[in-house]
């Protein structure tokens, strides 16, 4: 009972901070609220017995992605006092439609997962790291490699876009040689 209550409290934290992410006027504050959402999600993982996933979530998302976001915000925006974001241009109807569609998609995926009824979460044997590694690098190797390739393409794309927009003095000889 107390476990369920704790789970509920953490889940509420995640949801509430997610609302604050969207509602925050100040972009840096929005990113910090996002940090709380990500930490709460990590706590949910840990409560469900996926402690490795929780650790990785903290390490990559809070320590890495969030920090990168902060850095991006800081070097691209002016900071004379508090710079408000343009939240008034949000279109509520379109947003609601997209959110509902996404919710339906995820819910359908969860409901259609095989073996969900037979094995409730508590009865599952704890997953060892070796199982996890085997699952990623043996069973789902193709998907794993495809994802890696996708991320690599994204990195190269980002570099190309960043170089084009800002032709500094160092880039000029490269452009000329092409």
């Amino acid at each position: 009972m107390s476990a369920t209550l704790g789970f509920g409290v953490v889940a509420a934290c995640a949801l509430l901070s997610a609302v604050f992410v969207v509602r925050a006027v100040d972009l840096i504050r929005a990113v910090l609220w996002l940090g709380i959402t990500l930490v709460a999600t990590a706590a949910l993982y840990a409560m469900l017995g996926a402690s490795f996933l929780a650790g990785v979530q903290l390490l990559l998302y809070v320590g890495g992605v969030m920090t990168l976001m902060v850095f991006g915000v800081m070097i691209t925006r002016r900071h004379e006092g508090i710079a408000p974001t343009a939240t008034d241009t949000v279109r509520p109807v379109r947003g609601a439609v997209v959110a509902a569609a996404l919710f339906g998609l995820v819910a359908a995926a969860i409901v259609n997962t095989e073996g969900l009824d037979e094995a409730p979460a508590r009865a599952l044997a704890p997953l060892t790291l070796a199982d996890l590694g085997r699952s990623i690098l043996v069973e789902h190797l193709l998907a794993f490699e495809a994802l890696s390739l996708l991320l690599l393409a994204a990195i190269i794309g980002a570099v190309v876009i960043a170089r084009r927009r800002d032709p500094g003095p160092l880039d000029e000889p490269t452009e000329a040689s092409r």
Binding site: G35, G55, V56, L58, V62, G63, G64, T67
Partner: peptide
């Protein structure tokens, strides 16, 4: 590593 990485926040 995770908690140490949070130090930057």
């Amino acid at each position: 590593l995770a908690i140490g990485g949070l130090m930057v926040v």
